[in-house]
Amino acid sequence: MNVEILAFGIAKDIVKGASFQLDLPAEATVGVLKQQLCSTYPDFERLASFAIAVNEAYRQDDFALNEKDEIVIIPPVSGG
């Protein structure tokens, strides 16, 4: 399936854009997405951490993705 992914902060610099398309296997999970991001963009592995939000909430690695989900890469936050 083809998903659209939004990027913020340093993630935007790594993928060189605020959003991009990624092709994932059907029934992919957040964990699969993270692995694919790290192999496509090795700079993600150098971050202190990064999380994935789906439909405006943090999701664990076993969370299943759907084509129409709003998927966002959340690099280490630094508000305040």
Partner: peptide, 28 residues
């Protein structure tokens, strides 16, 4: 509230120096 905000709220801060810039907390 402030401690948790700094851990969980998706907001990012970039520090701009005379000679460069850095996304705060991005790297270990």
């Amino acid at each position: 509230a402030i401690d948790t905000l700094k851990e969980t709220v998706p907001i990012w801060k970039k520090e701009i120096f005379e000679d460069g810039e850095v996304w705060v907390a991005a790297h270990p």
